[in-house]
Structure formats: structure tokens, C-alpha cells
């Protein structure tokens, strides 16, 4: 792995990208001739965002969405990690469960969302359940692969230096498997965010996703855009937390190029 210093061009280029987006937006509102019902003006969206931020109900909705995503992510992480670890313990389990986890990872689980609605109703239960199941499979699959592919030399060291079975699992296998597990957990975090917000938009009574769907259906475009901005900010915060959790302390603040 090779470390790179952060280039001084990074932030100016990011600002340029944001500027270009605002420019395209403004062009769409003006010479582009896009209806304000589809693309509201930037000042109107900022006004709606200010209004939303001044209302307690917005924070309540954000807390519900945040809580649903967090609960789904934690449930999926705990069960996914445990399932991957358990399934990788014997060759038979590995052969049986690897295909099942891959299937769950790649299958369009949205097909099963009505079952979650029927089982848990339209409240937070169905969002947490659906989000947890969607995030479980990538976490379980990556954990299984991680534990199944621990380098034999690491296991040889454990055996030669007298590690017990428990020490081999927790002091050798787990840290050795951590990079691949982290990839699965990152994918799982993304999956839980997408599925919970999507589920709120499809059938719900609360949350920012529900507010976004409601505003879209009532042609309140500025309010809908304000909700999109709030959801983007919420997802950014969650991604930041996941990154903080999964990046080893010594690597924080570094840009690592794994291709080298």
C-alpha cells in the first residue's frame, strides 16, 4: 500500500464540481425552460429548507429515519458477522452457505418488501426488518469469505506458538479477516441506507423518506428538494460514522492507494 498526500487541488476541484451543478440548475430554471413544478429555483428550495429546519417535525422525521437505518445496520452487522464466522468453520457449511449468501446478496429483495409490510405493518418495524435483511447478505458473504481465506501461514504461526482455539479465532482469524469484513460492512451500511429510505418512500407514515414521497405526490417540489438535501446530509453523517468506525486509528486522515 502506498500513502499519498492530499493534493491542494482536491478542494478547489470539488468546489468547481458544486459550482457546475449550481450553474446547470440555474440554466435549467432560466434559458433551459424546465418547469418549476419539476425543478424549483435554488432560492425557493433554500427557503423551503429553512422552513423545514425551523419545524420540530422535521427533526422528528430525521430521528426516525436515522434510528431505522442505525437499527437495521447494527442488526445486520451482528447477525451477518456471526453467520459468516459460523458458516466458514467447516468445509460443508462453507459450500452450503456461500451460495445462499451470494443469492441473497444479488437477489432483488424489494420483491419481498410486501411480506415485511404484512408482517410488521407500515411503521418502523418493516423498515428496520427490510433494511436489516438487505444489509445482512453482503456482510455475511464478505465475512464468510474473510474467515475462509485467512492465510494458512497465520494459522501456522498460531499453532506453532501455542494459541488455543479461542485465541486463534479472536487474535488471529478475526484481525486477519477484518479488511474483507470491513468491505462487507461498508456495502451493508450503504444497503441499509438505500433500502430504509426507499421503504419509507414506498409505504410509511413517518420519516424523511415519507416526507419526500408526500411532497413529490402533492407537487410541492421545493419541499421535496429540501427533503432530498436533508437526506443527503443524513447519509453523509452516517457514512462518516461508518468510516470512522472501520478505519484503523493509525490510518485515519491518510489516503491509502491499495493498488500499489
Amino acid at each position: 500500500m502506498k500513502e499519498h498526500k492530499t493534493s491542494p487541488l482536491v478542494w478547489p476541484l470539488r468546489a468547481l464540481g458544486l459550482g457546475a451543478l449550481i450553474g446547470v440548475w440555474a440554466f435549467g430554471n432560466g434559458p433551459g425552460g424546465i418547469s418549476p413544478l419539476v425543478l424549483p429555483t435554488i432560492p425557493r428550495v433554500l427557503e423551503a429548507l429553512g422552513e423545514a429546519l425551523s419545524q420540530f417535525s422535521t427533526y422528528e422525521a430525521a430521528a426516525i429515519t436515522f434510528g431505522e437505518i442505525l437499527a437495521a445496520f447494527i442488526i445486520a452487522s451482528v447477525f451477518g458477522l456471526a453467520a459468516g464466522f459460523w458458516a466458514a468453520r467447516t468445509p460443508l457449511r462453507l459450500q452450503v452457505f456461500q451460495s445462499i449468501f451470494v443469492w441473497g446478496y444479488l437477489a432483488p429483495l424489494i420483491l419481498f418488501y410486501p411480506i415485511f409490510i404484512l408482517s410488521f405493518g407500515t411503521g418502523v418495524g418493516s423498515k428496520i426488518g427490510y433494511g436489516a435483511v438487505s444489509a445482512f447478505f453482503p456482510i455475511a458473504y464478505n465475512s464468510l469469505r474473510a474467515f475462509a481465506t485467512v492465510q494458512p501461514t497465520m494459522l501456522k504461526v498460531a499453532k506453532a506458538f501455542g494459541a488455543s482455539s479461542f485465541q486463534t479465532d479472536f487474535l488471529i482469524k478475526l484481525p486477519s479477516a477484518l479488511p474483507l469484513i470491513s468491505s462487507g460492512v461498508r456495502i451493508g451500511a450503504g444497503a441499509s441506507m438505500i433500502t430504509v429510505i426507499f421503504a419509507e418512500m414506498l409505504a410509511s407514515t413517518a420519516g424523511l423518506g415519507y416526507q419526500l414521497a408526500l411532497n413529490s405526490q402533492t407537487f410541492a417540489a421545493p419541499q421535496a428538494f429540501a427533503m432530498i438535501i436533508l437526506l443527503m446530509a443524513l447519509v453523509g453523517v452516517l457514512q462518516g460514522l461508518v468510516n470512522l468506525l472501520l478505519t484503523p486509528r493509525r490510518d485515519r486522515g491518510k489516503i491509502i492507494n491499495v493498488a500499489h
Binding site: K156, S176, P248
Partner: peptide
């Protein structure tokens, strides 16, 4: 106690 050819140090 063993000293292996590939060192086998724990990278983490």
C-alpha cells in the same frame, strides 16, 4: 520454537 522462511509476522 519455529523461525519460518516467510517470517509470518502478523501485519496488523
Amino acid at each position: 520454537a519455529f523461525v519460518f522462511q516467510d517470517y509470518s509476522l502478523l501485519p496488523w
